[in-house]
Design a protein around this nucleic acid. Structure first.
Lengths: 401, 401
DNA sequence: GATATTTGTTGACCCACTAAACTTATGCCC
DNA sequence: GGGCATAAGTTTAGTGGGTCAACAAATATC
């Protein structure tokens, strides 16, 4: 998720090989992104390549087991029936892992986006010991990998989502306030376990990876949005044309630290997290500390005034912060994820109200607010998709000559 | 400045021609970006292309008058002396125009970045009539274009910088509060003038184009930064790896409307512009309305306490807003432009103080604040560079077969 | 003046694409 | 069931833009 290429004079020399790599990736992407199986002729028509070229490229993808031919279905049109092509199932996969405040887990996803295996362990990891926690995670990953390799699945890599600041330039986890971790060399700790020896995980922020999963669910729709992941902390991710924009170090979207409530005295003032974080909402609701979100939702459904007011207030704070993000990066869609997805019925209106009031461009491009659709533990899926994306963009490395 | 490609399955089929286009652009970029003239052999070594290929590509660039051969300089090494290649001077150029609150102007820049012609007219355009103002601008442009065409310069296009919201998707200027313009079809009004008939201007925000000029001045240095353009309004631009990130409509960087001073009551609170805009600074300084910035600087230099306090306060507000931007997009450099460049001696410290206090990632990547170096009227230069960039990225369209 | 060294050019070759003909497999009409 | 239209996938020749290696040109060094 570099967000930048780095090359000073952008791009390297293109040779014949580059051409083939490009078209191979294009062809693969077409098969993977299509909602239904496609034929070689469909790909040719859509890409502008000739059928001859597509055939040659597809042959390579078949050999690499990235794509599979399905049984021809009874054709209703005249002419030779097409051979349907679809993402291969259960042949090539990536593993997404996650450590969060109250659970850890591992999920394996194949090139078609199917979940092949998954394990989740609940727990309380506030103020935990990184080495011990990562040991448990590695054990979990080991059991998943064992099943996969017994099934002959090729694993292309792993990724690990963390609720904090991961330095994508130099490596370590800088800060995960709610785990109580600081400057932890997570990659080294994970690689120490033999099961992961050959596959050091890519690290990334939980919100960024969750947003990637959300982007996949929404492929086809306008795919530029701010994904807000409400958990104990508040993370956000910027998705531009289906791609995560991580910034220089992968630290974009740290809206939990947006300055609010400054009243002209710029040296004071709370952050968004102090108004709209999970703990703040629970406290303002008058509910017991660390009670689950489900309790908040239940209380709100019963119409308890203090809870409803707390959510109203949290929504307003979130709306102000999001208005600032919209002004900074010009996006028209907000997706509420994490606990905000559960609380959306109560947050949506105040968030929208602030956006409409404050966003100066709203008259020409109203900002809409929707609810995440990527399901439970989206960051694990997103981590796997992150690794798979590298494969999809450079399939030549995995395709036999 | 789309900031997005739009293509759903990203990228089209690559053919042989695509290869040549890519390498032609690569070669041209190498000549343009090099600080000193380069030889064909240098380009070959740097790009990985063979000298044979580079020779063929350079021949096309010479024919298109985008590149020129210089006189060989006395070689100090053994071997045949190299033929130095440099951007052609005064052969191919683009025109950048600007309408702002107190001036309008036109500037022509060639592929090497040299200013060939320029005209600036001072005035007061608050609450002005768009048609009349654009008529004056067109006349100015006409006189510049006349001189250029007499000199045999080929004009590849024009751009127009405006202090407001330009809708890059559907075209019109949506809102320029300080001009008092709203929903003005600027392109149509400009194209009505015969001198610009064949070359409708690209419109863009003043801050975005000024930032582009700044990025060019800083090429070679780390080129991702937030450029803040303080004028009557406050605009900003996000520069990522030397490229402007404009967002979906070109409306990124509207930090003038960042919400500040909310004191827990999220329905109140002023914007950054109400604390740090030119009018706000002048008012808080106790100076006469609409007095020039030079007077503010002079008063600050004399140490007038009310002025110094006003600048301190404006700097703090700006620092809070910039901390929010840094949290949102993860950038490490802030560049102060427009009136903020003149006021930088007084703004820099409070801005830095807020950034250090609030940016949670500061311990690992301190945000620095520097002063713009692109000179007077950077948006005019940036507009021309914007047009030239399209040429540089797709030189094939301008190069004879 | 002979030799080494580097630049730029030339021509043979190679590879990935296109174009167009061909083969295969179906639906439809009689 | 046979002929015909239609469409999918394959085969073969051709083209373009690259590489590679040899060569010519121009200078420094001894």
């Amino acid at each position: 998720m570099p967000g930048s290429k780095g090359a000073s004079s952008g791009g390297r020399a293109a040779r014949q090989e580059t051409l083939r790599h490009h078209n191979l990736a294009l062809t693969l992407r077409h098969v993977l992104d299509a909602p239904t199986p496609v034929s070689r002729a469909d790909i040719a028509a859509a890409t502008g390549l000739t059928r001859a070229t597509v055939s040659a490229l597809v042959d390579r993808l078949l050999a690499a087991r990235l794509v599979a031919e399905l049984e021809p279905v009874a054709a209703q049109r005249a002419g030779r029936p097409a051979v349907p092509l679809a993402p291969a199932q259960g042949t090539v996969a990536a593993v997404g892992m996650e450590v969060n405040v109250d659970y850890l887990g591992v999920r394996a996803v194949d090139v078609g986006g199917r979940v092949l295996q998954q394990r989740v362990e609940m727990g309380d990891f506030r103020g935990s010991d990184p080495e011990a926690v990562l040991g448990r995670l590695a054990a979990l990953a080991g059991s998943v990998l064992a099943v996969l390799s017994a099934d002959g699945v090729v694993i292309v890599g792993t990724a690990l989502a963390l609720p904090g600041l991961v330095d994508s330039v130099t490596g370590p986890l800088r800060l995960a306030p709610n785990l109580g971790w600081r400057d932890v060399d997570v990659v080294a700790l994970m690689s120490a376990h033999p099961v992961l020896a050959g596959m050091p995980p890519r690290l990334a922020n939980e919100a960024n990876l969750a947003a990637r999963a959300e982007a996949r669910v929404r492929r086809g729709e306008p795919s530029s949005f701010v994904y807000v992941s409400g958990e104990v902390g508040i993370g956000a991710a910027l998705v531009l044309d289906g791609r995560i924009f991580g910034g220089r170090h992968g630290w974009s979207g740290e809206i939990g630290h947006t300055a609010l409530a400054t009243a002209g005295a710029f040296d004071e003032g709370g952050t968004l997290e102090s108004y709209a974080g999970q703990d703040a909402i629970v406290a303002a609701s008058g509910l017991p500390r660390e009670c689950p979100v489900a309790d908040v939702v239940a209380a709100a459904e019963r119409g308890e005034p203090r809870v409803v007011a707390a959510l109203e207030r949290a929504g307003a704070a979130l709306g102000v912060a999001l208005a600032n993000v919209v002004h900074a990066v010009d996006l028209e869609h907000v997706v509420l994820g994490g606990i905000y997805a559960d609380l959306a019925p109560y947050l949506r209106a105040p968030v929208l109200a602030q956006l409409e009031r404050r966003v100066i461009t709203a008259p020409w491009a109203a900002v809409d607010v929707s609810v995440a659709r990527a399901g439970k533990y989206p960051a694990m899926t997103g981590g796997a998709l992150e690794v798979l994306q590298a494969l999809v963009e450079e399939p030549a490395a995995w395709v036999p000559a």
